[in-house]
Amino acid sequence: MTYRFPSLNGLKAFEATARHQSFKAAAAEHGVTPGAVSQQVKRLEASLGISLFLRLPQGLLLTKEGDAYLSEISWAFDLLTDATAAVAPALNGRKLSVGISECPIAHLPKGWPRHSKALLAYIRETRISEYVELIWSNELDELLLDRQTRHKNLSEHEVVARHGSHAFFFFTRSGLANCRQTRAIIDELSR
């Protein structure tokens, strides 16, 4: 069987750019220049015959088609990651940097996230912060706050603490909202 799909490098560039909402951050992740990532995404768009991003003065915004494509590409990358983990379990996926404001800390299990072996595979570091702007500067991937806050293009997920007594809000870029790491963190927070 012959598989027909665009360049894998183009797909990786698109997925990383969509997750970070930034050519620069995607380039840093892949160890190439932002111009190289931008060109890979442009070639992908040309091969598909659609625009995946709106390029605005204030940054990138996924088009409707780009958003739909991202969910499918992310799913496919999850399958590839699972297949790779099955034959090479020592190969770790990307770990995330998570910020936590002070209020939620009191409602998390002692030593969170180190209390969970499963989370150790997904979280690189945690630090106390309540600044959503650190997501935009790529200093944090995700942030757990005790309040809602509206920020453009961020995914917001309400998390109810273990005993249902407190609700917190988990923020991340839309491209990370459905990745395996984020799903595992939110599932653990909701237990």
Rank of each mutant, 00 (worst) to 15 (best):
M1K: 09
T2V: 12
S7T: 01
S7C: 06
L8Y: 02
G10H: 00
K12Y: 03
K12L: 08
F14S: 00
F14G: 00
A18H: 00
H20L: 11
Q21K: 07
G31N: 02
P34R: 02
S38A: 05
Q39T: 12
Q39P: 10
K42L: 15
R43Y: 04
L48V: 11
G49H: 01
L54F: 13
P57Y: 06
P57Q: 04
A68L: 03
S71L: 09
E72H: 08
S74Q: 13
W75H: 14
F77K: 08
D78F: 13
P89R: 04
A90D: 12
L91T: 12
L91G: 04
G93E: 10
L96A: 06
V98Y: 03
E102Y: 06
I105S: 04
G111H: 06
W112Q: 13
A121E: 01
Y122N: 04
I123V: 10
I123L: 10
E125F: 10
E125Y: 11
T126I: 12
T126L: 00
S129T: 06
S129N: 02
E133C: 06
E133K: 07
L134P: 03
I135Q: 03
W136I: 15
W136H: 15
D141F: 03
D141E: 08
L143M: 02
D146P: 10
R150C: 11
K152A: 12
K152E: 14
N153L: 05
S155H: 04
R162D: 11
H163Y: 15
G164R: 02
H166L: 13
F169K: 07
F170T: 07
F170R: 01
F170E: 05
F171E: 05
F171H: 06
T172Q: 08
L176S: 07
C179G: 05
C179L: 09
R180K: 09
R180Q: 09
R183T: 14
A184R: 04
I185P: 00
I186R: 09
E188I: 08
S190L: 12
R191W: 13
R191Q: 12
